[in-house]
């Protein structure tokens, strides 16, 4: 899809493209290329000499039990966040799609958590689930559940999952609601006339019609859980207790910024880059049909 009528000139478009391209090259392409290059190098213990080691860094990263642990954490974390955020959002969207009074008020009240930063979401949930000052944390302890996310790895994971999913539900809700509203009412009426009960109508008619939305949201939620939840983990658990909530992104940060292990951090970055590229490709290939190149 292209225009047929154009303006003449080369200097003007070049000038107009310059800012975007300059920022892209200096702060995106160049660092990404650097990451790939660094991932092939290794520094000695004193940082005096670097040598080319090929794929050795990758072999070390993949063989490292700490990295495998982080990968396992990421898998558990990302799939839990995506599932929870999608399921809750779908349920609420189906309710809000019914013709009830005040539907738009519910809608307003459900979409604003989108505006809360992941790190702030972490602070809110910490304040609720803190073992000694949190309302729910104390109630749990009083009820005989030994609740302390600062000591118990599973509880810490649960808390970062809930805080991350809480924030993402709004986003999914908006898309599910838009998807539901675009289903022709006649289809639902036809199913109703055929005698299908509401629940059956949902699973056999509505849910299949929503599947493009669901698939798109699944990809977006996975990307969110992989990359945008750094703030939740950094503010809430710092990857702990132990390494119970250390995800791949968090590990790149710790190895690069705190431990200054550049070769390994770069190799980990490159692995994550491949992951984002794959996810984005999936998103545009199978979902975003509206964009033509």
């Amino acid at each position: 899809m292209d225009r047929k009528v154009f303006f003449k000139g080369r200097a003007l478009p070049a000038l107009f493209l310059l800012p975007q391209l300059a920022v892209t090259l200096v702060f995106f392409i160049w660092p990404a290329a650097q990451a790939v290059w660094q991932s092939l190098l290794q520094q000695d213990a004193f940082g005096l000499a670097t040598e080319f080691v090929g794929l050795e860094n990758f072999a070390e990263v993949v063989a490292d039990p700490a990295w495998r642990g982080a990968a396992a954490n990421t898998a558990v974390f990302a799939s839990s966040v995506a599932f929870l955020a999608l399921a809750v959002a779908l349920f609420l969207a189906v309710q809000a799609d019914k013709s009830i009074r005040g539907a738009h008020i519910y809608r307003t009240l459900l979409i604003w958590p989108y505006a809360v930063a992941p790190a702030i979401a972490a602070v809110l949930w910490l304040f609720l689930f803190h073992p000694s000052i949190g309302l729910i944390g104390r109630a749990l302890n009083a009820a005989g559940v030994a609740w302390n996310y600062q000591l118990n790895g599973n509880q810490a994971m649960l808390l970062v999952v809930v805080a991350s999913a809480w924030k993402q539900v709004s986003y999914n809700f908006i898309f599910f609601l838009a998807g539901l509203q675009s289903i022709p009412k006649s289809v639902l009426e036809a199913a109703a006339i055929d005698g299908a009960r509401p629940l059956r109508r949902f699973w056999t008619v509505v849910f299949p019609l929503l599947s493009p939305t669901t698939f798109f949201l699944l990809v977006v939620n996975l990307v969110y859980a992989f990359f945008d939840t750094f703030g939740v983990i950094h503010a809430l658990t710092k990857g702990g207790p132990g390494k119970a909530t250390e995800t791949l992104i968090y590990k790149v940060y710790v190895d690069g910024v705190d431990n200054l292990n550049l070769g390994s951090s770069a190799a980990q970055s490159v692995i994550l880059m491949v992951l984002v590229i794959a996810l984005t490709a999936v998103q545009f290939r199978f979902v975003e049909r509206r964009v033509h190149y």
Binding site: Q20, L21, T24, L25, F28, I29, W30, P31, A32, Q34, A35, Q38, F227, F230, I249, V252, Y253, G256, V257, L262, S265, A266, S269, L272, M273, V276, I277, T280
Partner: peptide, 16 residues
């Protein structure tokens, strides 16, 4: 080139 930035979030190229 511009499109490519979509695939390079800051999180995956922190150090460089």
């Amino acid at each position: 080139t511009i499109f490519l930035t979509l695939m390079l979030p800051v999180e995956v190229r922190i150090i460089p």
